[in-house]
Design a protein around this nucleic acid. Structure first.
Length: 584
RNA sequence: GGGCACGUAGCUCAGUUCGGACAGAGCGUCUGGCUUCUAACCAGACGGCCGGGGGUUCGAAUCCCCUCGUGCCCGCCA
């Protein structure tokens, strides 16, 4: 409704400005402060004042007088408040909102007919997922959900780096060391089991006897070479390590939940020859040169000083070379490609884009979303290789445990007589605990660095997932208490300020989805959800539904309003990847 | 040294694209509110030269320039 309202305002305002002989390039449409009883306003009078040689309020009056709302259905009235031109909603706006928001998928936008691949996480399969990388799956998964809800045909991709030096080291270490030389695994899970070989291997390469290290390096080099040539035996050796570790990581990511449509392996682009074909094409390009035995690209024309090495002096390819073939596959398969990357990848991403440009691709299809690091208190960074950092499994376990404690401590002073079963307690603990972790990360601008703090991440009060989830559970509680009362889709009785504010919030939701998708900013939905709950709680406080004090028509209409609000809450949480408990 | 980000209340953050109504929340502190649809909630108080300095503008947290502080990157690693 809000989107349609905005269209009506734009049309009416543009026509009025045109009639008055004013430019229509900038309509100055904005959302007014909360205490102004308008859905949209225009500040255009400021800009026209000097042109019109009249003070802004007078120009605003002139514009308001010229606006013809006879064709508008959702805009009831236009008025001025000082220099502002305000547009207030009609009964049809509220009525339409109440009806439309009954849909389970309220907020979903029409299909765009465009496909987009969202690549996120893509952590190297070297060991357990740690919190340092947690932003990637949480942000990426939410972004994919939002784009899906905004009408895109979304494919969620995990790009598996199974061909680089890291995997060669890992494979060599797995084949070389004996389990008896390793510490106990931190968890009975394949990724925790295998990472011990990886850490042991790296330790050996850093501190081992030089002659033995040289021998090991030769073996590692032969694995890299075998992979590069697409040698089946080598692929089989590495794939045992890759698939096992990745399986463990998937299990952890699944708890968030972050699930993928495709796991695309880097080795795929070596097997099918496309990486070497890319190398051939690059060598023929005018930007290619060979220096110290390595083939590279001069990216001066893209304002990148550093050259792009695409073939080592031993003629093997690099990660970035294979990533070029990978991205050409994306361009062939989808209309556009979004990659969620740590900010440390930015230079790499820019070089990649330049090289794709050289290869003749339309790089407008490519977009990267960057996020800043999650650090440990004290400035220590998280590393799989060194084994520093907080494992995501530990964070999620702790979150669920704390949520369970919270649920149990509240059991005694619950007013409602709905006995929660043991299964309910576990369900709520999981939904709330994991929701809190997700919300803590997804609600912030990704470009801001975060210092990980257990207390902040696991705060169940205030601006948190549980705050929004609780409102949802309350809405469910009202419906459950309503008994025989049938909801009525008549907005007329909903005439108090609290009810109108709630309807206005519901109406805005699709526009929030639209903006969050267009800007690739999931946190916009999180901000909306928090603010919407404030509105819902105000309604909850002042407008009883199931009460003897309320007449039947009003109660029935309020019940429909609660349903609409519940759908809004559930879908806002849904696109953030957070569950909506029916009870808490 | 160069590039990219970030700097808003004691703390954690919205708002910055695309300048516009007195700069908003939460946490913490203080005061109140559960026999009333769930108090993981609500009402109120306290708390800001929006890092600093210039500039553009009728108007700047928002745009431009300079400066200070912090993070990330600058490999024939990924």
């Amino acid at each position: 409704m809000f989107i349609a309202f905005r269209r009506e305002v734009e049309a009416a305002l543009e026509a009025a400005l045109d009639d008055l002989g004013y430019p229509t390039g900038d309509l100055g449409i904005e959302e007014p402060p909360a205490d102004v009883p308008a859905v949209l306003a225009s500040s255009v009078a400021f800009r026209l004042a000097s042109d019109a040689q009249a003070p802004p309020p007078q120009v605003a009056g002139e514009i308001a007088d010229a606006i013809d709302l006879s064709a508008a259905d959702l805009v009831a009235d236009v008025s001025t408040q000082g220099p502002y031109v305000n547009f207030t909603p009609s009964d049809a706006y509220f009525q339409g909102t109440l009806e439309d928001a009954q849909a389970d998928e309220w907020g979903r936008l029409p299909d765009t007919g465009e496909s987009v691949v969202v690549e996120h996480t893509s952590a190297n399969p070297t060991g357990p997922v740690h919190v340092g990388r947690a932003r990637n799956p949480i942000l990426g998964d939410a972004l994919a959900r939002i784009l899906d809800f905004a009408g895109y045909d979304v494919t969620k991709e995990y790009y598996v780096n199974d061909a680089g030096r890291q995997m060669a080291v890992f494979t060599w270490a797995y084949e070389t060391f004996d389990e008896s030389d390793l510490p106990e695994p931190e968890r009975d899970k394949p990724d925790y089991d295998f990472v011990r070989y990886y850490r042991k291997g790296n330790e050996f390469l850093e501190e081992g006897d030089p002659a033995a290290v040289e021998e090991a390096e030769a073996e590692i080099a032969s694995i890299i070479e075998g992979l590069d040539e697409g040698d089946e035996d080598t692929l089989e050796r590495t794939s045992e390590v890759v698939d096992t570790v990745l399986g463990g990581m998937q299990e952890t990511l699944g708890r968030l939940p972050a699930e993928f449509d495709e796991f695309v392996k880097e080795t795929r682009f070596l097997r099918d020859g496309s990486t070497h074909e890319v190398v051939d094409r690059l060598q023929d390009s005018e930007y290619a040169f060979k220096e110290e035995g390595a083939w590279q690209l001069d990216l001066d024309d893209w304002d990148i000083e550093q050259s792009f090495v695409f073939l080592r002096s031993d003629d093997t390819t690099l990660y970035t070379t294979r990533d070029l073939a990978h991205h050409e596959w994306k361009f062939d398969s989808f209309d556009s490609a979004i990659t969620v990357l740590g900010e440390d990848q930015e230079l790499h991403a820019n070089k990649l884009e330049a090289a794709l440009d050289i290869l003749g691709n339309d790089t407008d299809q490519l977009e990267a979303v960057f996020y800043a690091w999650v650090n440990l208190p004290g400035g220590e960074s998280m590393s799989t290789r060194q084994g520093t950092g907080v494992d995501m499994d530990d964070l999620l376990d702790e979150a669920v445990n704390r949520a369970e404690d919270a649920v149990r401590s509240r059991l005694d002073d619950r007013i409602r007589g709905d006995d929660l079963t043991e299964a309910d307690v576990e369900r709520i603990a999981r939904q709330v605990g994991i929701g809190a972790v997700r919300y803590d990360i997804v609600s912030k601008q990704p470009t801001k660095a975060i210092t990980f703090d257990w207390e902040d991440a696991l705060d169940f009060e205030g601006q948190s997932a549980p705050y929004v989830q609780y409102a949802h559970a309350r809405a469910c509680g009202i419906s459950a208490e309503a008994g025989d009362l049938e909801p009525s889709l008549d907005a007329a009785p909903l005439d108090t300020q609290a009810e109108r504010d709630l309807l206005e919030g519901i109406a805005r939701f699709p526009a929030v989805v639209e903006a969050a998708a267009a800007d690739r900013e999931p946190h916009q939905v999180a901000t909306f959800a928090r603010e919407f709950v404030d509105t819902f709680n105000a309604f909850y406080r002042s407008c009883p539904v199931v009460s003897d004090d309320v007449d039947d028509d009003t109660a029935a209409a309020r019940l429909a309003l609660v349903d609409a609000a519940r759908n809004t809450l559930a879908n806002a949480l849904g696109v953030l990847g957070i569950e909506s408990p029916d009870s808490m």
